[in-house]
Design a binder for these strands. Sequence first.
DNA 1: ATAATAAATGTCCTAATTACATTTATTATT
DNA 2: AATAATAAATGTAATTAGGACATTTATTAT
Lengths: 242, 242
Amino acid sequence: MHTKNSQPEVFEPTDLYQIREKMYVATDCIIFGFHEGKLKLLVFERQVEPFKGSWSLVGSFVRLDEDLELAGQRVLEEATGLKEVFMQQLKTYGKQDRDPGFRCISVAQYALIRVEDYIDKLEKHYGAHWFEIDDLPELVLDHDQMVQDALEQLRHNARHRPIGFELLPEKFTIPQLQNLYEAIYQKPLDARNFRKKVLSLNVLEKLEEKDKSGSKRGAFLHKFNKENYLQLLKAGYNFEIF
Amino acid sequence: MHTKNSQPEVFEPTDLYQIREKMYVATDCIIFGFHEGKLKLLVFERQVEPFKGSWSLVGSFVRLDEDLELAGQRVLEEATGLKEVFMQQLKTYGKQDRDPGFRCISVAQYALIRVEDYIDKLEKHYGAHWFEIDDLPELVLDHDQMVQDALEQLRHNARHRPIGFELLPEKFTIPQLQNLYEAIYQKPLDARNFRKKVLSLNVLEKLEEKDKSGSKRGAFLHKFNKENYLQLLKAGYNFEIF
DNA sequence: ATAATAAATGTCCTAATTACATTTATTATT
DNA sequence: AATAATAAATGTAATTAGGACATTTATTAT
């Protein structure tokens, strides 16, 4: 079903020689979203040869007058319409032969987006498609490796930094937060211990509102209190969520 | 004493325009060593304009036919004569104006080297100099930032991965290891608790030999057992040194 | 034989993590 | 109006890990 793959296009030696005279710098985005209790990756149908039509991360060459971070934001906006998204540099991939055509170094950046309602809207762009992270298709070039590295980093960072909140709506319930962590780490967590732990961190603000989508009783909504977090961080507080 | 600094050279608009037509890719190395109980950074006198003569990390453009990792190893070997050194990618610096001349992206990699005897030998190269990390000179371009980021990453990684051993001789004593961690984290550690903790990790192999350089009684030498470590890692063991 | 020195060791206390079961608020059904 | 159903919310006891702290031991130099 999701194993599209075309043959690598053969380049004539002269072409190859020509494009190997220049070093290209690209950036690729690993876009994560959280929807219906599942952690998902947004992938795209590659628009250019070689490998046109294969599944691929979205990327672009970095422009000469453009900061690297900005290039990532631009790629993300072009692909999803979203601005000022949480994005973090992952790693730079620089194997000499990673791209069969160009000599191209790629700076991978990963993005966490609040999927909320427009999960479907995103799929209209450029043959974009959400895949669950435990059922990913094969990707072009070294993009599989990028995704694996991004997942590892996401798992690591979600433990030590409050980045999980970037994947949730601004207001969320404790059970939703737990679901997210269960999706990231792919293992069930104890509800009592999880609640105790995250509340003890003192960075969640309990609201009066309830979210009743998940149960008859409803669960209280919470907000991440960034000011509190930054203050604790400054005080040398050593964070660890669950 | 170590605050050499020259004025940025002024470029003519025509020159500037020309060199901004191309994207350059460089790699810079943050080289750490441990000597006499101190964590040190190896810096160099910059050989080219602009800022010739300022303190700088050592770096080079990445060659067209060269893997990124290899470029780092090459730079390190050219600067120190050392081969197959522990090196890890830190981050890519890509601000549009980070270099006043070129549009140049730099992939920073940090190296941990076993200084042992040849600490002096290294200083003969290219005006190289070791600085203690709590007394660093001002560096050229964004190299100060690179060093700060590298230190942060080193501190983080040394806690969660057994990379500290890369800075020690193959055979080392527990007190030496403690000194290293005290140097990295710049705070004293309790000898009993430290010993208890590192030995409980089950990755140190105690030898019969003693090192008597540090005391009359002498301290037993140990080796890092990489096989054990990899096995524990595979078993999902969650590492944390002290 | 004695003094000097750093290495090596053990215990108690406190804090954090884990395991585990019941009650509560609300809605839908009869 | 009563009842059934559902996920949210809560507490306690047991275990484990971390932190504080003082003495003994092996060796060399005097």
